[in-house]
Design a binder for these strands. Sequence first.
DNA 1: CGCTGTCTTGAGAGTCCTCAACCGTGGTGG
DNA 2: CCACCACGGTTGAGGACTCTCAAGACAGCG
Lengths: 251, 251
Amino acid sequence: MSDLPSPGQEPPRRFVVQTARTASDMAHCAKCGARAQSVCSAIEDHDLDRLGSSAIQMNVPPGCSFIEDGSDAIDFFNVTEGTVKLYKLLPDGRRQIMGFAGPGHFLGLAVSDQYAFGAEAVDQVRLCRFSRPRLHRLLDDFPRLERRLLKEASNELVAAQNQMLLLGRKTARERVASFLLERWNRCPQTDVLSLPMTRTDIADYLGLTIETVSRTLSTLRREKLIADAGGHNLRILDGERLAELAEGEAS
Amino acid sequence: MSDLPSPGQEPPRRFVVQTARTASDMAHCAKCGARAQSVCSAIEDHDLDRLGSSAIQMNVPPGCSFIEDGSDAIDFFNVTEGTVKLYKLLPDGRRQIMGFAGPGHFLGLAVSDQYAFGAEAVDQVRLCRFSRPRLHRLLDDFPRLERRLLKEASNELVAAQNQMLLLGRKTARERVASFLLERWNRCPQTDVLSLPMTRTDIADYLGLTIETVSRTLSTLRREKLIADAGGHNLRILDGERLAELAEGEAS
DNA sequence: CGCTGTCTTGAGAGTCCTCAACCGTGGTGG
DNA sequence: CCACCACGGTTGAGGACTCTCAAGACAGCG
């Protein structure tokens, strides 16, 4: 593959910007597991070289921040492996996580000249990095890419609006249920979902405290709606009731 | 001008979809006051006829709903006058207002095949309506329009993320202060801002109850940070302190 | 084995919500 | 002309949900 900004065993630190050397492997796009779900699917096979040479691959270890809120927006990113959290901070340290971006997600849509958010790796993350001018050149050359990006933005907007409904009007119970279902939808065909992020991350995503998240999960466990599945995994025991809960149709 | 779906004195009703006849006036785009701020600014003057003939103008009276959550997304809208509220509902009636769209705002970005939100006129509203196929034809013919739409989506996303921070992490006091500043920024050059919406709307926008909104405004009034300015207007007396408040840097 | 970090659980406090009364305005009709 | 009602807004008292503070459980790791 290519560059490793820092080995995996580096102590996870916040606000350490990762740099990377150029990627020599031009063919990585063809083998990219996230391509089908990402904006890159708008590029035809025979143009993949062009795409590949525009991107630089990066590895980011867990807990490492690679976009700092308010810094100049020079790069755009595409997640190919792992999970990234996007967040905003208030001056006194209160944090709101805007979302968790998995493989295929494009980072940098909500951007003017400065990033409007920070980004940090949840687990071991792999990224494609595009510089601003390179991305614009790609957009000029591939109109389909631009349309795909607009679609991506629309999806983000839908997700953001659902999250506003959650944060503004749902109870703690409903928020946790909604979150579990959202995670579940990312794990196709199984009744198991993965929660790579910490309780703190979940709390900052749902606008709650870690204690409330923990208590709520315990209650759901006690009520046999979910069960532990080892590691950072949960098993869904009663998805229907959970869905009712998430929409406020049940107590 | 053109069609009037219903006279102004009609009793304001929710969930009444407005229909409209075709607009005969092809030149309306050239005179449109909202054009400079809207996506239509991406269209050159000599192509305005093309744009104008693709759009249908509509008038919507206050309290009238013209997009219903979950209904088929056949049309896109551009606000040219007045204020529109976009909202989502939970089954039991809890409501979250996603935003207030003023002149120049484009509605329908967050859309797949069904609308993901409802839309209702706050005051007397004027809209341009585009059918889905017509808009796509416009996008094919005017690539600049597509890029402008992407920029619009980015701005929406930034606004949505700020709102998530507000809903997830700010106190009632901070929310109201943030809201007042947001409204203030729409009224250039004066220390007066307009609140065409009701307390209920403000509450549903900020994730609070009308009582809390009312109480908080009263407190700010008592503290001489704001003052009444007649009608649905407020005067900002101490913008700096209000800004500190909004960011959680003051009590 | 003890350390550290994450998670869990408990008790009390606080912010905001709920319920309720009251006020002011505008429209209606006797 | 004014009583009446509807509606939006304000204010108060009490309650509830979630937060804060604190202690303990558990796992990973040097």
